[in-house]
Design a protein around this nucleic acid. Structure first.
Lengths: 138, 138
DNA sequence: ACGGGTACTTGATGCACTCAAGCTAATGGG
DNA sequence: CCCATTAGCTTGAGTGCATCAAGTACCCGT
């Protein structure tokens, strides 16, 4: 066999799909949607404001409001007004949220399982190639 | 600098996001959603049955019904009962649909622009590495 | 022709996402 | 100090994707 019968752009689609599907599965094993899991994953110890989350998740602020509302209803997240600027709401993760987040991260086997098939040298080469691909587009 | 400051799993997230966003942008420049563009892209000259599409798009048949309905309303796709088995509906692309599909594919610059940064040898190496990652998970 | 399976549709529901409009709190100019 | 403006968030309306349960129309083997 001279070279792969699967073209590179098709491989990229497959990789993207596998990655997405793995995250979605990991989220659902913990009872979350993919978007909710992303938000939970983006929280830091100090908590984040709604605006920060909107920027991180690259979506509208009102979308964050809804996501946080659902997570809050599940007791995974708490929302309180910032002391310095009472306009901003700080979203913090609860102990239950921390447990769920751990479960999601543990269930997200993609990085471990798939990247684990590569040797350290291969991972380094892959990282280099991806670096080229990911450099700012313009 | 000894090695990349960006870990490999983060690079994968970035790649996946860039790929998704590029497809979404391409679809929207043609007035389609990402899912609609996927369906249009999956059509062959002979047309495809709803069931085939559901299998290709990895979703429910009733979801395909809705997607096709929207595309049909836009005149991009036609749906007619199969002659041999009147249960199955064959979805075919219209001339207008063909134009839109070409526009989407042309606007999807990801593969061209990003993969174009690599030399032929690099693309081959990347393909080999992705092949390892994408081998059946179990 | 009858019963079971196949292919698709319909209806109901939930979530993600976006936009416009609204509300409250901070801020800066007069 | 007050008022207009702006920032941060929420609400409401609307759309699309997606799934499930139920229904319809059709095929096929007996």
């Amino acid at each position: 066999m001279p070279d792969s019968p699967v073209p590179l752009d098709r491989q990229l689609w497959d990789l993207v799909y596998a990655h997405d599907a793995a995250w979605d599965r990991a989220a659902r094993t913990a009872g979350l949607s993919a978007a909710q899991a992303c938000l939970l994953d983006a929280l830091t110890d100090g908590g984040r404001s709604m605006g920060e989350l909107a920027e991180l998740l690259l979506c509208d602020a009102s979308n964050v409001t809804q996501l946080v509302a659902r997570l809050e209803a599940g007791g995974l997240v708490a929302r309180r007004a910032d002391a310095d600027d009472r306009r901003v709401k700080r979203v913090t993760i609860t102990p239950a949220g921390r447990r769920v987040r751990r479960a999601v991260r543990r269930a997200f086997d993609f990085a471990d399982e798939r990247l684990g098939r590569l040797t350290e040298a291969e991972r380094l080469r892959l990282s280099g190639l991806l670096g080229k691909l990911l450099a700012p587009p313009s």
